[in-house]
Design a protein around this nucleic acid. Structure first.
Lengths: 199, 199
DNA sequence: CCTCAAGTTGAGATCGACCTCAACTTAGCT
DNA sequence: AGCTAAGTTGAGGTCGATCTCAACTTGAGG
């Protein structure tokens, strides 16, 4: 790859990162190219589809989430590990509307590598007795979808309101709060289908 | 209004009702006209803007919600009144993707007439001691946004999953579950801005 | 300095949705 | 039956976004 091509690639990624963060994943490609100071043709050269651009922009988040998950498992208190992990993921969502879109729409790909560690975080919190024992990892999708929706609705107007939503939600996940649930958890297939079904 | 005009109006409303319910508020107007067996020009005659069509389609929901609210206030148990009201509103959301969109995007208009009764339902549940005393009516938006997001993600794949999400959320609203919240509730202006900000 | 593969460019084709309006049709009155 | 205001029609203009490609420019090896 020629050095000017690499340079343009970086400029495009930087522009996309910024615009995605501010306005979500639906920013016009023309605008990304313009912001990067590059023609639309070049954008298509580097990233033939929007999905490839999105993937390149958010590549690093996978590692970030893995690191957060690692930290959560090291926490002394299982419940604290659980909540700080969920909170951290929500912080990522709140700081970047693009990541928020991604978490809602194409979460299957985005969360796949973190799935195993997330499972362990949930198991550990449940075994500690702090997390209610009738929830499964599939229920975490509710938390993320819910907070993501609040972030989208409030980010311009009450940028920390989602923390309140999250706190209320987490209180509902404590073992002490448990009341019988009306329907069984989603199956793995259902969760997967829901996650990439709405992209 | 001439009788054929009225007839076409009904056909358009019926078509819109069906398509909105299945696919949300963004269905192309052309498709609604086609489904109604009427030309696009006629649709624009009857409903100059999409918003007017949407309003006409969902006009009845206002009364429905008011009726549900009335029933909630008559319930012997304040907590039960509260939960059955919220559940009923979520059922409306789950049964109709268009109403779901409306609840998320233009909720300001949609919920305005029900606001007063909703306030009373919340107050009553709080005073009864069942609803935690650090939540306000503004927090109800979190519940509705959250469940709406789950409905959208799962409606095709796990159509009752939202009931589980709602149950978990309601458990977090019980007085017994209360743990300190990190940020104050949204102000009335913030809530209003958030509600019609994302339309 | 020359060459050419690699890379860039941007005008324009394409697409789907929105919206208009002049020509046509018809309900309903007398 | 005839008139007219009310209503319908759909081809076509507009708009914003996606995507292509033939002509041009440039980095880098010889």
């Amino acid at each position: 790859m020629r050095k000017d091509a690499l340079h343009n690639r970086e400029r495009l990624l930087a522009a996309a990162r910024g615009l995605f963060a501010d306005r979500g994943l639906d920013v016009p490609l023309e605008e990304i190219a313009r912001t990067a100071g590059v023609s639309i043709g070049t954008l298509y050269n580097r990233f033939p589809t929007r999905a490839e651009l999105v993937e390149a922009v958010f590549e690093d988040r996978v590692a970030t989430v893995a690191r957060l998950a690692g930290r959560a498992l090291e926490a002394d208190d299982a419940w604290e590990g659980f909540t700080t992990f969920i909170t951290a993921v929500c912080e990522l969502q709140a700081a970047d509307l693009g990541y928020n879109d991604l978490a809602v729409r194409g979460a299957a790909t985005a969360t796949d590598p973190g799935y195993a560690s997330m499972l362990r975080i949930v198991e550990r919190a449940r075994e500690s007795g702090a997390l209610r024992d009738d929830v499964t990892i599939a229920d975490m999708a509710f938390v993320l979808w819910g907070v993501a929706a609040t972030v989208r609705a409030t980010s311009r107007v009450a940028p920390t309101a989602w923390r309140r939503h999250l706190a209320l939600t987490l209180d509902g996940l404590r073992a002490a709060a448990a009341h019988p649930l009306p329907v069984p958890p989603m199956s793995v297939e259902q969760t997967r289908a829901a996650l990439d079904g709405c992209g």
